[in-house]
Structure formats: structure tokens, C-alpha cells
Amino acid sequence: MLATTTSTRDSGLLDTLVPLFRRQTGIDVKVIAVGTGAARAMAARGDADAVLVHAWESEKRYVASGDVRDGRLVMHNDFLLVGPPADPARVRGTRDVVAAMRAIARTGPFISRGDGSGTEQMERALWRLAGIDPTRVPGRDATGQGMGATLLVADQRRAYTLTDRATYLAFRERIRLVPVLEHDPHLLNVYHAYVVNPAKHRRAKATLARAWVSFLVAPATQDVIGAFGRARYGQALFVPDAGKTEAQLGLK
């Protein structure tokens, strides 16, 4: 059983990868789409066999605690700030996400995931960098839901939000929010796959999990990841990263 995060499900990538994996190996993968926090927690409780997450800082802690092991860098995509076309904080056209967060903090509104996901952790990190207490941002609220639902709420409430590119592209046709800031190096979203440590969680099926992780970093799969979304959105949603190091992506 594989636990993964919502943003990969909403973008549809796993809908492509899971059947491919089944054809190659005959192994079926049950996708439990939860926030990164819950994916971690499920791993920590041994309810999942493998995880695919994107919250590098906290991942390091779970590797240290021995809950998960054999981490492999799979791919990355990036976050972007989206907001209402009226852009009350006048962020559009700027390039510094920290300055943009400060501008949004003055005007609001901002809709947060608030679900403990990697996206929310990224958002908190950005507020921290900007030196802002997010609870004091006017009109900031949290949905406690996945990225897709949060985009819909932000759209209806004419609010800014932080989203991964894959989900935004998948929802672009349905919402009026527009990208107001992208391509800042702070906005990188790196996915690692892990095997739940069978030494710590006896029910975890480590062999199957290893097959899944190996599949994700195999060259053929990496090509599929690199091409995913291009046909539909005109641009790829993920950048395949197998074989690269964290440092090359700017992670510490």
C-alpha cells in the first residue's frame, strides 16, 4: 500500500504511473491521497508501505527516526503564487516572493491549505522569511483541504494562495485566479520516495515498496514523468530528477 500526497493525485500523475507500474510488475498500488503530514504519520504508524512526499526539511527527521529509509530523489516541480486578476497587493510583475508575501500581508486576503501539507509548510516558511506572523494577515484563512479545493475557495473568495504548478494547471480552466509570481528559487517543490522501514514496522511490505521506488527512478519512468502534462497543458508539470543530488536543486 502506497501513501502519497494530494498534489500528485490532483494533477493526475499517479493515474498515469500506477497502471504503468501494474503492467510492468503485476503489482497493484493503492493510492491514499493525503497531505504530506498525514503521509508521514501513516508511514510513522506503519499503515503504508511507501511514501511519495515533498517536504524536505521534515523528511530528514523521519529518516533520522528510522520510520522511512532508502530515500530517492524522484522529481520536482515548483510553486507559484496565484491571485485574483485585480491583484490588490500589486504583486504581478515582481520577482521576489518574500517581498510579495509582505505586500499580500498588508492587503490580504490569503487562503492557506492549513492541512499540514508540504504546500502549507512552504507557505509558512515564506511567511517566516518575510518576518510576518501569518495569523495577523487580514483575510487569511485556511481550508484544511487539498490543493484543488483550496484553489476553488481562493478563487471564489478572490484571494491569493500558494499552489504547486501541477494542480494549478489542472485547475486553470475552472478558475479565474492568475499567476502573480513564479520562478523564484524559494518556490521549488522536490519529491522524494521512501520505503517504510520494515525493521521498525513489521507489517510494511518492503519488497513491494522497493520495487515501486525503483520503478519511479527508472529511466523509462523518468521520461514519462518528464513528458506528463505536456500534451494537455502545453508544458510539463514535473522535472525528472533521478540521479541528481539535493544540492544541485539548491536544497540543504
Partner: peptide
């Protein structure tokens, strides 16, 4: 639902 999703 939120807390379940969060893993708590």
C-alpha cells in the same frame, strides 16, 4: 476530516 488528513 482536516485532522485526519493532517495525520493527527
Amino acid at each position: 476530516v482536516t485532522e485526519t488528513g493532517r495525520g493527527d
